[in-house]
C-alpha cells in the first residue's frame, strides 16, 4: 500500500522536475507527426507538444493530471479496479499483465479527486498506452464510478478521453459499457451535475459514441482526431481519400461539436475558469 503510494509520489515529482527542466538529458525525440527531432528537454518544457509543429503527442494519465491539478491535491479513486476476461479470450490475461508491468496501470483509465486553484472536481483520464485506451469492462466501470462518485459528492466531473473505441477482447461486454457510461452521465447531469468532456488524440469508436460526446462543455486538444469510424474504415467504405484535416478537432469545432480547442498548456486556466463559473458543482 505504502509502496504504491510512494511510487506514485515519485512519479509525480519526476514529472514536475521534467516540466521545470531540472532533469537534463541529451536525448532527442522524433515527432511522429512531422518527423523532426527535438531535444527531449524542449519536449518536456512544452508538456510533450512538438516544439516544431505543435503536435500534441499522447501522454499518460498520471502525467496529464500532474500538469493540471494543484500540487498535493491528487487522490486516486478506485485504483484497485482490475479488468476481467469475460470471453476467456486467448492470450488476453497475459497481455493485461504485461501492460500493467509496463505502465503501472491496471487498465486504461485513472479516476481521481483533485483540485484546480482550490476548486474540487472528480477527474477521469483515459490512457492510450493501455491497448489504445480502449473501453473494456474495467474502463467502463471506472468512468461510471467516477460519475457516481461526483454525483454523490455533488462535484463537477472532468473526463479526458483518448481511446481507440471498444475493447475487442471483451466483446459484447465492452459494447455494453457504452450504454452503462452514457446512462451514468445522463443520471449525473439530470441531477444538476456539471460534466466537462475533453477530447485528446485520438478518440474514436465507442468512447466517442458514449460518454465523451455528452459533455455540458465540450473541449479538445489541437489536432486531436475525433470520430466514430476511423479514417481508414471510412476511406475503404466510400472509396475516396478524405480531405486534409478531416475529423480533427478544428474540423469538429467548425461543424458545431466543440465549444473550444484548448492547447495543452492552457488546460488549467480554462478548467479553472469553467469550475469557477459553476461554483457549487454547477448546482443552483
Amino acid at each position: 500500500m505504502n509502496g504504491t503510494f510512494s511510487r506514485r509520489r515519485d512519479r509525480l515529482l519526476t514529472y514536475r522536475a521534467m516540466r521545470e527542466g531540472k532533469i537534463t538529458s541529451s536525448r532527442r525525440t522524433r515527432c511522429s507527426a512531422c518527423g523532426a527531432e527535438s531535444p527531449q528537454l524542449e519536449w518536456d518544457r512544452s508538456l510533450q507538444v512538438c516544439p516544431r509543429c505543435g503536435f500534441h503527442a499522447p501522454v499518460g494519465a498520471y502525467y496529464r493530471l500532474s500538469n493540471i491539478l494543484d500540487p498535493g491535491s491528487f487522490q486516486e479513486l478506485e485504483e484497485k479496479l482490475a479488468p476481467a476476461d469475460p470471453l476467456s479470450f486467448p492470450d488476453y490475461p497475459a497481455k493485461l499483465e504485461q501492460l500493467e508491468e509496463a505502465t503501472g496501470l491496471k487498465d486504461g483509465a485513472v479516476a481521481a479527486l483533485g483540485r484546480i486553484e482550490g476548486r474540487r472536481a472528480v477527474f477521469g483520464v483515459l490512457d492510450s498506452r493501455f491497448l489504445m485506451g480502449s473501453m473494456g469492462t474495467a474502463v467502463g466501470e471506472k468512468i461510471t464510478r467516477a460519475a457516481e462518485y461526483a454525483d454523490k459528492k455533488r462535484l463537477p466531473l472532468v473526463i479526458f478521453s483518448a481511446s481507440g473505441g471498444a475493447r475487442m477482447q471483451e466483446g459484447i461486454f465492452s459494447l455494453m459499457q457504452m450504454a452503462k457510461t452514457a446512462a451514468a452521465i445522463q443520471r449525473f447531469q439530470s441531477r444538476g451535475g456539471l460534466y466537462i468532456s475533453c477530447f485528446t488524440h485520438p478518440t474514436t469508436g465507442g468512447v466517442t459514441a458514449s460518454f465523451a460526446s455528452l459533455g455540458d462543455i465540450m473541449l479538445a486538444e489541437p489536432g486531436a482526431l475525433i470520430g466514430f469510424a476511423g479514417p481508414r474504415v471510412i476511406e475503404q467504405t466510400i472509396k475516396e481519400q478524405l480531405p486534409e484535416g478531416f475529423q480533427r478537432a478544428e474540423y469538429l469545432l467548425d461543424h458545431g461539436f466543440l465549444d473550444r480547442i484548448v492547447p495543452r498548456s492552457e488546460w488549467r486556466t480554462v478548467l479553472s475558469q469553467l469550475l469557477a463559473l459553476h461554483e457549487k458543482g454547477g448546482r443552483p
Binding site: M178, G227, F228, I234, F246
Partner: peptide
C-alpha cells in the same frame, strides 16, 4: 461509416440515443 455521417456527428447521435 461515411464522410457526411461523421461530419454530422455520428458519435454524438448514438451517444444521445443511449
Amino acid at each position: 461509416p461515411g464522410k457526411e455521417a461523421e461530419e454530422r456527428g455520428q458519435g454524438e447521435a448514438i451517444a444521445r440515443c443511449l
